[in-house]
Design a binder for these strands. Structure first.
Lengths: 190, 190
DNA sequence: TTGATTAACAAACATCTGTTTATTTACAGG
DNA sequence: CCTGTAAATAAACAGATGTTTGTTAATCAA
């Protein structure tokens, strides 16, 4: 469908994303019209509807971009062939918190908006997949459904991120992963 | 503003909520128009706009209703047929899972929709407040920010609920709170 | 460089949105 | 059982949405 190799498409999409990002600093999604977006982006309205069905879909694609970076951030430490341990989990956590900090404006919009698309779900789903890799390394879960445990851990971390955002990033990313580690150290996964 | 003790208002709002609920079984919120809602509800369009700004606000009020029941479920300490555990958190958890099970259709829509994350936030925020009460009972948190811990626990439980929903409620509420307790028993608070 | 492709565009259209009017009807309280 | 209040309604409106059409021009591949 979309020809990402075409410079015109990339230009249009970037313009639309920048426009929406800038508008989201001022008002929430419901108050933003497609007309405003295309006017701000200086793009024809038909061009918007060529690529997206609704403004929510545009936002979803913005999340996709962020998620690519999230996965990169997460996978980085493991690419050195280290074993997965609580320490490594902490390294991953640092990477994740760094990533959130780097996109603080974006995550703030996501977290504070009241009408956003399934982007938090997307992020949490991704986190859940990542957590599955970690959780499967634990020996002897003893009657615990690993899918449940992975989802538990993923959303728990997301909960930390949300609270971090709500406190306006008053802690550093290092402190946050420290907190996570401290909480996890209370837990004796074998 | 809204006169809740007027039967007409209650009737209109219930009709609108039922209509939206039924439409959400078929398509997602973005594809539903206000016109469809009022046609399904057999209510004048002006009546909709008298009570709500957008369809999202109608949905928010539906969540509010659910949240009232959630808090009730949580605060209602002892109802018949339940074995009271020593662990307060476990008792609370059972209540919460029971509540979700009772509103399984609603939570399924919430969880599977791509446009309702703001509402999940609302629920998680509520869960976070509830968790704060629990978390504050733990002795010596040792350098852990209690707000972070509460948010961590709240979203963790939400993660369990999400996975529960995604597996189409194949477990019982009792099993779910059992899982939570098992996971938490790995954790040595206090 | 050239030719085929297709994105971007302006314009026009039916539908939906959000608001406002005036009118009718149901309600709560006395 | 009245009566003032206010909710529900139909109708009409400007503006936004979503789609379609034909045209222009940028891009890719050869």
């Amino acid at each position: 469908m979309d020809n990402y190799h075409d410079r015109r498409v990339r230009k249009s999409k970037i313009a639309l994303k920048n426009a929406l990002m800038s508008l989201l600093q001022q008002k929430n999604l419901q108050q933003i019209t497609v007309m405003e977006i295309v006017q701000t982006a200086d793009v024809n309205r038909g061009t918007f509807y060529k690529h997206y069905q609704y403004k929510e879909e545009l936002l979803e694609e913005m999340v996709d971009d962020i998620i690519v970076d999230l996965i990169d951030s997460y996978r980085n430490p493991y690419q050195k062939g280290e074993n997965i341990s609580v320490d490594n989990l902490n390294v991953s956590a640092i990477k994740i918190f760094d990533h959130v900090e780097n996109h603080a404006d974006f995550y703030t919009i996501i977290a504070k908006s009241n009408a956003l698309v399934g982007l938090q779900n997307q992020i949490c789903r991704q986190l859940t997949d990542l957590m599955k890799e970690v959780v499967q390394q634990y020996q002897e879960p003893e009657g615990i459904d690993l899918n449940l445990l992975a989802s538990y851990q993923a959303y728990a971390i997301w909960g930390l991120i949300i609270e971090w955002i709500n406190q306006n990033f008053k802690y550093s990313a290092a402190y946050m992963s420290n907190q996570l580690l401290t909480i996890l150290q209370l837990t004796r996964y074998s």
